[in-house]
Each structure stands twice: as structure tokens, then as C-alpha cells.
Design a protein around this nucleic acid. Structure first.
Lengths: 188, 188
DNA sequence: TTCATTATTTGCCAAATGGCAAAAGTTTTT
DNA sequence: AAAAACTTTTGCCATTTGGCAAATAATGAA
């Protein structure tokens, strides 16, 4: 669990008893490639810290295409933050792209931590904000770039991943078709 | 200032003395079309609530193109949240697209409010999170849509704006060239 | 290992978008 | 009102990406 604790410590101070409490509140979960951590239509009741592996968040658009909204890799939290906070059914799936090791907080654990650790909410808010800002900053320039550049940027961000991720996931994330991505790959 | 207060009240309760305090901490500012509220390279020291008008957030990409990252319309806060919080120079401009009336909070005012009003941080965090989630949710599907659809969606979101915004702003927001946007307009 | 299934590549052609420069239209300044 | 400056439209053609279906490759199950 060191990854989690170190990650939290980046956003605020915690003393040893607090750290121990956090460790007790978290549950280690393993997910196999392809399994879902949370599903569209359900109210998410857990938050995952990805200790190992890769997730994606995806949904079906009005045309029925499956769209990968973004990838979440290790050392990050994965959750449909909006649905989780508002306790409304999610409109997206959170799915393991590779086998994953997760550290899972339940809603109750989070409430306990929030009530017990005075810095907790502050830490979580900083983490949330940083994650969202990163998403905006990654998505925003993509519109101005051509498909090849978007793919190259993905390669840079996830160097050893491009070949472990199904083409269809990656293509929909990049906003192109599978065949186009295949051609782009060949041309590089 | 009712717009501001009503907006804040959507995210938490405030009693009258608190509301009065907030009103005292805020400064009304008018900006003319084209003027900047904050500029790239500077550390932002203010947050604006847009009472009237439209802003855009823009930057220059590596090719030197000016890119409109997003628009912010009335009843929303405009700030480069990341630079503001971390006190680092912004990499983007916040510019008035139309004449605007703003309610401006300085860093000091915000600190005072945070120290005095117990609910303040919670309210601000909710607002921040909501704004960021909205940005992600608006950007994300754009990649999967063609230019015409993106334009139509913009028209829907800002019905009476498309013709008041320079073509260049809108085109770079939509991720297309001015000429393409001009042709799309004609074809509708 | 072999078969079945799924994922990826490829060919062919169509559609969307870009690049550039000139023309037309608007707005601002003098 | 005329000139200058800026914005938008348009023509022409190149490039990028898409759509579809078949071929190939890779993966998983029997």
C-alpha cells in the first residue's frame, strides 16, 4: 500500500495513526483484464486506487459506438467522480484494460476517513482537481492535432502500452477508426 | 450581485451575515470586448464571476496557432484554476469575447472568506469540480464527432452567440480551420 | 494441435477537412 | 465619406480520414 500512502502524502501531511487508519479502511482487489470496476446505470459505491494495471473509462454514444473517454493508469484513482458524489447512476463503464491490483475504498470508509482525518477532504479535493485538470489539458489540444500526432502523444504518455491495448479502445480514444489507426501505425 | 449569491447558494447554505461579507469582498469590474482578464506568463491573482458577457480561455500551441480552449459564459467563474491554486504563471489567456460585467475576488478576499466562512471551501470545491467535470464532458465527445456536429452542438449550447464570436475563435475551439467553418455554416 | 473466434491489416474508393490566395464583406479610423 | 484594417467567404486542389469488405494474423477454446 505504499504507493497509495506516498501518493496521498503528495497532497497533504498525515501522521502515523492516520496512515494506519487509512490502510485499515482499504481493501485489496484484483481485477482480470476486461472486468468492470463499475458499470453504466449503477450508482458507484467504491473508489479504486490503481496500484498496478491500466483502466479505461468508456461509454456508448448516441450512434451506439463504444467510446473510450480516457485511460487511467497506476498511481491514480479511478471513479466516475460525478456519479459517485451525486449518488446518481453512472453513464460510463470503468473497465480493467489489463489485469489490475486495486486498493478500494467504499463510500462508508471514505465517510469515516472524512470524519476522522481532518485533512482528508482537503487532500481528496486536491487530488480530484488535479486529475480533472489533467484530463482537460490532455483532451483539449487533441482537437487541434491530427490523428498521427494524437497517436504519437499517446505513445509518449504510455510508452509500453500501445501494444497491449486493443486497437478499438485506442482508436475511439483518439477519435479515429480502427483502420485509420492501423494505417497510422504502419506509416510510423 | 444576486446572480453570484444565488449561484453560491446552489452549492451550500449561507446566512445573511455571510452573504453580506461576500458582497463586501467582491469588486465589480467591467471589461471591454477583447480585453484580458488574465494573461499567459503571469500568476493569476483574481477570480472572476461572469455576471454578464462571454469569455474564452486561449493559448498558443507549438505551431504558434492561437487555440480557443473553451468558452465561459455568464453565471460561471473564469480563472486558470491550476495556475491560480499553485501560484504558478498561467499558460493561457482569459479574454473577454464580448463586453463583460465581472464580480472579482482577489486572492486575499478569497483567503478571508475561506478563513471566516466555514462552508466556503466546500462550496468552492463543489463549484470547481462541477466546472471541470463539465469541461471534460463537453470536450470528450467532440473527438468522436465530425466538425458539423460539433458546430451544431455549439449552436445549441450558445444559441445566440455563434454570430457574435469571431470565426477564428470558434474555429479553433471546434478544431477546424476558419474556411472549413465558413463552409459548414453555409451548408446548414 | 486444430478449429473457432476475435483482432488487425489492407485495398479500393468516397467524404471530410486543410492550405493557400484572392475576392467580397465589415468595421474602424482618419 | 474614403481609406485602411480586419473578417469572412470562395475557388481550386491536396491531404487526411472514413466506410466497407476481404484477407491475414493472433488468440483462446476444445
Amino acid at each position: 500500500m505504499d504507493k497509495l500512502i506516498n501518493y496521498l502524502l503528495e497532497f497533504g501531511q498525515l501522521n502515523q495513526p492516520q496512515i494506519d487508519l487509512i490502510k485499515r479502511k482499504v481493501k485489496v482487489v484484483e481485477l482480470k483484464k476486461g472486468e468492470y470496476f463499475s458499470e453504466a446505470g449503477k450508482i458507484p459505491r467504491q473508489v479504486a486506487f490503481i496500484e498496478e494495471g491500466l483502466f479505461r473509462v468508456c461509454y456508448y454514444n448516441s450512434k451506439g459506438d463504444e467510446i473510450t473517454k480516457y485511460f487511467v493508469d497506476e498511481n491514480n484513482f479511478a471513479v466516475d467522480i460525478n456519479s459517485f458524489n451525486q449518488k446518481i447512476p453512472s453513464s460510463e463503464y470503468v473497465q480493467a484494460v489489463t489485469d489490475c491490483t486495486l486498493l478500494v475504498f467504499s463510500t462508508e470508509s471514505l465517510n469515516d476517513l472524512s470524519a476522522t482525518i481532518i485533512q482528508w477532504d482537503g487532500i481528496i479535493n486536491k487530488i480530484t482537481e488535479k486529475a480533472l485538470v489533467e484530463k482537460v489539458n490532455k483532451l483539449s489540444p487533441m482537437l487541434a492535432e491530427d490523428a498521427t500526432t494524437r497517436y504519437l502523444n499517446f505513445l509518449e504518455k504510455f510508452p509500453n502500452l500501445a501494444n497491449r491495448v486493443p486497437l478499438s479502445y485506442l482508436a475511439s480514444y483518439l477519435g479515429i477508426t480502427q483502420s485509420s489507426l492501423s494505417r497510422i501505425r504502419k506509416s510510423i
